[in-house]
C-alpha cells in the first residue's frame, strides 16, 4: 500500500519528558552508554493509488501546519513507500 511517512520530533531545546523517563529506565537496566532518549511521532498517510508530487506537497503542508506545531516540534523527515 502506497504511503507517505511524516516524522515529527520535539524541538532539540525542549525537555522531552517521555524520552527522559525512558532514558532513566534504560539506565536502571544497565544501558549506561545511552546518553539520551528522545521520542517523536511517525505518522503514516495511506493511499489506495500511486502517490503523486501533489500528495507529497500536501503532506509537507499538512505536516508543517497540522501534524506538528512549529513552536514545540519540527517535521524532521517526509518519505514515501510504494
Amino acid at each position: 500500500m502506497p504511503k507517505i511517512i511524516v516524522e515529527v520530533m520535539p524541538k532539540e531545546v525542549l525537555l522531552d519528558p517521555a524520552g527522559k523517563s525512558v532514558n532513566n529506565a534504560l539506565h536502571r537496566k544497565g544501558h549506561k552508554a545511552i546518553t539520551a532518549v528522545r521520542i517523536g511521532k511517525r505518522i503514516e498517510l495511506h493511499f489506495d493509488r500511486p502517490i503523486t508530487e501533489k500528495d507529497l506537497a500536501d503532506a509537507r503542508e499538512i505536516g508543517e501546519n497540522f501534524l506538528s506545531n512549529g513552536v514545540i516540534e519540527d517535521v524532521v523527515k517526509i518519505s514515501q513507500e510504494n
Partner: peptide, 10 residues
Amino acid sequence: PGGLIRNEHQ
C-alpha cells in the same frame, strides 16, 4: 501565539 507543553515537573 505560542504553545502549551507538559508541566515542567511532569
